[in-house]
Design a protein around this nucleic acid. Structure first.
Lengths: 128, 128
DNA sequence: TATTGACTTAGAGTAAACTCCAAGTAATAT
DNA sequence: ATATTACTTGGAGTTTACTCTAAGTCAATA
């Protein structure tokens, strides 16, 4: 698969794909004789995992570290486990922050829905 | 309340507090005669809201816009409602991404927990 | 009184994650 | 054969959100 096809499949620019590979977040991709990238199924699996994690907010550094450990083989199971657990903790924190903000947003929204109808905002202990 | 006290109360640097005010994310704070910031309760309420939203990942621009609308008074109820709804949508998307990533992380973690014990990673349809 | 420390501003610097550009090579359509 | 398009690399530029520095004012302590 060419870089363009991959770029379209995952809605991500070719520049970003090259960037990910250059910094070691995506393992090195095979090339044709003339040096053009030819993504394999395994590359796509990696990419899918990477994008899932990036979309959730994992930092690039953490993903690079995981890819590095993976490339070092079976001796790194424990390190990979630790890394994954650490990242899960971070996501759980982030999730908690989002839930808090969503609660607050929903409360505000319900107040503003009334305000739009009645023309005045009901009293609230926190104004803003 | 001085900038330092606020900074300590919210675990955020004085620089960041000044920055937030300068860019209009925090409404202008009252000053003493000599020009030193003196945060009121209302300032703290704003700050608390702002930090809740920032911690969840809301962009500064959106918060600035909300503060601006708020300062314009009752004529902006609808605009504020629209803004809040838009931000809620964004957070819901982000939350969904996090849940996806957490599912995947948890699955990987359980596989690696076995791998660490047995010394080999069980087969998986997506390797990486 | 001297100096230490907190505060002020404007503006420069930094980190993360892209995103774009220039210059060149390769493949393809006419 | 030529023109167009896609690809390559290395490096520069951009955006977001801070973070730091310099130069100066003000308050409090030795």
């Amino acid at each position: 698969m060419t870089i363009k096809e991959v770029s379209e499949k995952f809605h991500i620019s070719s520049d970003t794909l090259r960037y990910y590979e250059r910094i070691g977040m995506l393992p090195p991709v095979n090339r044709t004789d003339s040096g053009i990238r030819d993504y394999t199924n395994e590359d796509l699996n990696w990419l899918e995992l990477i994008l899932c994690m990036r979309n959730a907010g994992l930092q690039i550094e953490a993903i690079i570290e995981y890819v590095k450990l993976y490339s070092m083989g079976d001796a790194t199971f424990e390190a990979r486990l630790a890394l994954l657990k650490e990242q899960r903790e971070k996501l759980l924190c982030q999730q908690a922050q989002i839930i808090k903000a969503l609660d607050r947003l929903s409360y505000k929204i319900s107040r503003y829905e009334v305000a739009v109808k009645t023309g005045s905002l009901s009293w609230d202990n926190e104004k803003c």
